[in-house]
Design a protein around this nucleic acid. Sequence first.
DNA 1: TATGAATGAGTATTCATTCAT
DNA 2: CATGAATGAATACTCATTCAT
Lengths: 220, 220, 220, 220
Amino acid sequence: MNKRPRPAHAGERPSPPEALLEAAFRVFATRGYRATRLEEVAEEAGVTKGAIYYHFEGKEDLLRQALKHRHRAIFGEIERELAQQRAPASTKIRLVLRRLWQHVLNPTWGHTFRLMFGEAGVEFPALFRMWAEEGPIQGWSVVRRLIEEGVRNGEFQPGVDPEVAGRLAVSGLMLQGALQVHSGLQDLAPCDLDRIFDSGVDLFVHGLTVTHNQPRMPTP
Amino acid sequence: MNKRPRPAHAGERPSPPEALLEAAFRVFATRGYRATRLEEVAEEAGVTKGAIYYHFEGKEDLLRQALKHRHRAIFGEIERELAQQRAPASTKIRLVLRRLWQHVLNPTWGHTFRLMFGEAGVEFPALFRMWAEEGPIQGWSVVRRLIEEGVRNGEFQPGVDPEVAGRLAVSGLMLQGALQVHSGLQDLAPCDLDRIFDSGVDLFVHGLTVTHNQPRMPTP
Amino acid sequence: MNKRPRPAHAGERPSPPEALLEAAFRVFATRGYRATRLEEVAEEAGVTKGAIYYHFEGKEDLLRQALKHRHRAIFGEIERELAQQRAPASTKIRLVLRRLWQHVLNPTWGHTFRLMFGEAGVEFPALFRMWAEEGPIQGWSVVRRLIEEGVRNGEFQPGVDPEVAGRLAVSGLMLQGALQVHSGLQDLAPCDLDRIFDSGVDLFVHGLTVTHNQPRMPTP
Amino acid sequence: MNKRPRPAHAGERPSPPEALLEAAFRVFATRGYRATRLEEVAEEAGVTKGAIYYHFEGKEDLLRQALKHRHRAIFGEIERELAQQRAPASTKIRLVLRRLWQHVLNPTWGHTFRLMFGEAGVEFPALFRMWAEEGPIQGWSVVRRLIEEGVRNGEFQPGVDPEVAGRLAVSGLMLQGALQVHSGLQDLAPCDLDRIFDSGVDLFVHGLTVTHNQPRMPTP
DNA sequence: TATGAATGAGTATTCATTCAT
DNA sequence: CATGAATGAATACTCATTCAT
C-alpha cells in the first residue's frame, strides 16, 4: 500500500525468476488477491518469503508482474491468421470465435477472469483496463471488423449492428466459459461445451445473415 | 478456544435488523469480502461491532445472510407477468430480456457479480451456486422455455437450440452489463446501453426466426 | 474490576435467588473464574444475563456470594458431636477424620478446592483465607486438640507434635481426595477410596501411639 | 477462516527460544492461563507478540511447551541418588521426602500447583495428567517402593499399606507446602517449615516402624 | 423484576514487511 | 541471492456491563 523507496539494488535487479511469477499467478488466481498469503506463494515456488522481497516491491507489485507475465495477447496471432484467409466473413468469424472459445476454456483464462472481476479489478483498476483492452475489447473488435466486411460484401444484412453483435457474441461465449468451465456450473446445469459453441455460432451467424423475404436489391 | 455453544436466544432469534443486512451487503459488495472490516459495516448501519455479533455468528454468517436477504428472485415476478401475456414468443422474449437487462444495469447486480466471481465464489462455493441457480441459470431457463414455445408454434426455426440460445443471450447481456456499466469500460470502449440491448435483441430474435428461404444474392 | 456505585435500589434488594447462586457456584467451579461466562451462569439458572445484574454487583460479587452461600462450616457440627463422646482420643480422631473424608469426597468440595487453588485464590485472596480458615485450618485444629488430649491422657506419645500431625493427616487426605476423586486420577493410578482412608488412619494413629520398648512411666 | 497449513518450517523447527518458554511459564503460573496476555509474555521475554507466533502455534501450544520445558523430572535424579545409598529404608525415605519437600517449597512448584488445579486442569486435562504422572504419582511411587523394601527387611511393620502410606506422606507435605508457602497461610496459621517436615517425617516413620509390642499402660 | 439489545474495551491471531547474516 | 527471525499494524471476535422497556 505505502510505497517504500526502491531498494538500493533496484537498478541492476535481474529478471525475476519465472517460477515465482508463475506461482504467484496460480495462487492469486486461485485464492484471490487479499486471501493470498505471500508465504504460500513462496512455498509454491520453493523459496521463502524473503526472496519475494528481493525480486519484487511487495504484494501489489508481484500481482502486477505476474499478470503482465501471463499476457500474451492472442489476438495478434489471430489477426495474422485472418489476413491470409480468403473466405466468406462468416467462415472467418467462425474461425475467430473458435480460437477465442479455445482460449476461454483454458484454466488460465478462468483464473484471470475471476481475478479481474474479484478484488483485483476494484483495487487495481489500471490492471483491469489493461486486461479488458487486450482481452474482451480486442476480441469483439476483431469480430466487429469481420461483420463489417460481411455487410460490405452483402453476405450479412445491412441492418446489423456490427459493434453490438461482436460484443454480444464474444461476451456470451466468455461468460458461458466462466460459468460452465471455471465455476463448476457444469454439474449444476450441464451442457456439452461443443454444443454451446456450435449451436451458439450457428445462431449468431444466422442472425447476421441476409434473410429478407423480399429479394434484396444488389447495391447499385 | 472452543466455539461457544449458540447463545440461548439462538432458536427464537428475531429477524435481525435489516439495516445491518443492507449495510453489510453494500460494504461487502463494494470492498470485497476480505477487505471489508466489520467495523465499517457496523458504522454504516449506525451500530457498533458488538451488535453484529449479537445478531450473527460472525463475518461469514453475515455475508451469507446479507446475500440471502438480497435474494428476492426477480424471476418469480417475471414468470407471473409472462403468464398473463397473450403474444408471440418473440415479444415475450423481448419482455423478459428487457427485465433482465434492467436488473443487470442495477449497481446491486454489478456488486454481486464481482463478489461472486471474486472471493465468495472460491471461499463459499455454496453461496456461488445459490446465486447462479437463482440468477443466470433461472434467467436462461425462462428464455429457453419461450424459445421452445416459439418453435412449437412455428414462429422460430425448428433447427434452433433453445438451451444454448437462452444461455448465450442471457450471458451476453450479463457480461456486457458487468463490463460496460459496472467495470468502467464505458469510457474505454463507449457504447450506448439502449443500443446494446436493442440491437442485441434484434440480432438474437432474427437468428431464431424462420427464414423464408429466398435465394441469397451472390456478392456482385 | 472497577467498582461502580451501588445502584439506587441496593438497600431494599431482597435475598437473591438461590438458583442463581447455585448455578454460579457450579459453573465457576467447573470452568474456573475467568473462563466462566455470565451468560452460561444465567442460562444454567434459567434467566438472562441482565437478571444477574439486578441481584449482584458484577462477576466478582457473584463469585463471592456464591461461595458464601455454599459455606456450611462442617466443623461446628463435628465439635458438638465430639463433646458428647466419651471415648479414647484415637477413636474420636477416627470419627473426625471420617467426617472430613466424607466431606472431601463430595463433588462440591472438589469444586471449591479447584476454585480456591485456581484463579480465585490469586485474584481474591480474602476469599481464599476465608475458605482456608473454615476448612483446612479448622480441620487440623480439631485434630490437633484431640491429639493433645490423647497425649495428656497417655494414649499418645509425649513426643508427638500435635500441630504438625494434625496438619499432615488432614492435608494428606484432602489432597488425595482432590487428586483421586476430583481430578480423574482414579483411572491413572487407581486406589480404593476406603482403603486410602482406613490404611491411612491406621498408619496415622499408629504413628501417634505409645510404642516405646521401655515401659512408659505413669506421669507422677 | 481455516487454520492455515503449518508453516513451511514446521518440521525442522529449531528449539524455540528458551527465553520465551521461561517467560511464558512465569507469567502463566503467576497470572493463570486465561488472565495471561500474550503481550506480557512477549515483553517479559524481550520480544514482540509476533515472535510468539513464529515459534508456537498459539496460546495453548505455548502453555504446553512451557510446561514440558519445565519438566526435567526431579525424580530421575532422586532415583539415581537412592541407588547409591546403602542405608535403612527409613533413612532413604527421609532423604526422598527431604528432596521432595525442597522441591515443593520452590515457588515454581507452587505456581504449577495452582495452574494445574486451576484452569489448566479443566481446559487441558492431558496436561494435568502429564503433570500428575511426573509429579505426585511418581513421588509416592518412589516412597512406596522404599516402604516395601523396609517391610521386606523387617524394618517396617508387615501390616503397613505401602501404597497408601506413600500417597499420604507425599500428599500431606505437598498440600502443606501449597498452603503455607504458596498461598500465604503462613501468617494466618504460622508454623515453622522445618518443624512441619521434621515432625511430620518422624511421625510417618514411627507409624511405619515395627512396634515392640510392650503392653500399653492404661491411663491412670 | 427481568429482558433483549447493544456497547466497547480487551485480546488472540494474521501477515506484509524488514533486515542481519 | 536467499533465509530465518522478528516486527507491528490491522482485525475478528469475546464478554462484562449498561439500560430502556
